[in-house]
Design a binder for these strands. Structure first.
Lengths: 193, 193
DNA sequence: TTTGCAATCTTAACAGTGTAAAGTTATAAT
DNA sequence: ATTATAACTTTACACTGTTAAGATTGCAAA
């Protein structure tokens, strides 16, 4: 088992993760449509067929990248959630989570798109993906539940924040000024009482 | 100039539109990732290189499909907008537009995704696309302006409805029951007073 | 009407892709 | 040390987007 970056032996040692990292990097730099499995292999310094020892096919690789995206987002949300744990201003907490959500989308445009892409949404999926996605969603849910128990409140908040993030990422909404004020302006119309 | 469906002459007569229709059909039936330019040509009964007489490349074709998607959506929204013109219940009108938006997304999943896809969002675009997209957006805007002049109200409503549509289309939100009640439940937390 | 020309289409070719099959090498278990 | 298995490479195939060169057509000017 070898953990070096450079390939020095026939067996890579940590190829699975190396491929995931390379894929993330390429997606962010070149875009999803420019990402090829062969390119990922090339970037990692292995042969074109090497990925198939670790992933069933290209989609499976991308699903795992998306899953790690959800995990990254979840960590950000959960950190904020803990910071605010003793605060009584639950609404302020929710807004902060919204800002984090949108900021994550902007900082990781291509991966964010991938996370909800049809490459993934249209079925195979994976346990990892479902767990990671649910975990991220649950952060929002917990924050909402401190404000109101109304059943659709979570979906409503998620929809608003997700829609805003999507529209910005997809260039349908030009954003001038910083993200935070923008998110606050948009979410201020959400009222749960 | 010939308008028949079957190809009978060397010149097709209306190939541009035929290609757009075929592309729409294939996208909806097989998904965006399964759509190939060659496949579109095949479906239209024309050679693989024929599309290049009408479109610069594959992306340009898809951009036009997306544009026609926005146009279709705009027509639906505008029809509803006119029907409600004499109504005084502006909020009810807005809700109806929201239902139409989400219903359109569900009825045309793949095209809806295409409309906001990175294939398009990441730059080339086209005049057609921008005009059609702006026209659809403007329907929402007009409806909102009858409720409130607050600057971010439109973005807020659009974000919510678009987010809801996206999450459903991308299978992140399972929908049980009919769309209408679902949309109303989610949007009822939007309050503009 | 004839001629020429531009638009529309076809065929052929190239590089790049995803992926399966078969062979090679390293590691772990005996 | 031997062997089995997992991790890798090489090779090959069908398919893709796109370009170039040639064929066919309708139309406008002569």
């Amino acid at each position: 088992m070898r953990m070096t970056n450079q390939k020095q032996t026939y067996h890579h040692g940590d190829l699975r993760n190396a491929l995931l990292q390379a894929a993330w990097k390429i997606v962010e730099k070149e875009g999803l449509d420019k990402l090829s499995l062969r390119g990922v292999a090339r970037e990692t310094g292995v042969s074109q067929a090497a990925p198939y020892a670790h992933f069933k096919d290209k989609s499976s690789l991308l699903v795992e990248v998306a899953a790690s995206g959800f995990t990254a987002l979840k960590i950000l949300l959960e950190t904020q959630l803990k910071e605010c744990d003793r605060s009584k201003d639950h609404r302020e907490m929710l807004d902060k989570l919204g800002v984090i959500y949108v900021q994550f989308a902007l900082d990781n445009r291509a991966v964010f798109r991938l996370m909800f892409s049809d490459v993934i949404s249209d079925f195979p999926k994976s346990e990892n993906y479902e767990i990671a996605a649910a975990a991220a969603f649950s952060c929002l849910e917990r924050a909402i539940l401190r404000i109101t128990p109304q059943p659709f409140a979570t979906f409503s908040a998620w929809s608003t924040v997700h829609g805003l993030a999507s529209l910005i990422v997809d260039n349908r909404l030009e954003i001038s000024g910083d993200v935070e004020t923008y998110v606050r302006e948009v979410t201020k119309f959400l009222k749960f009482d």
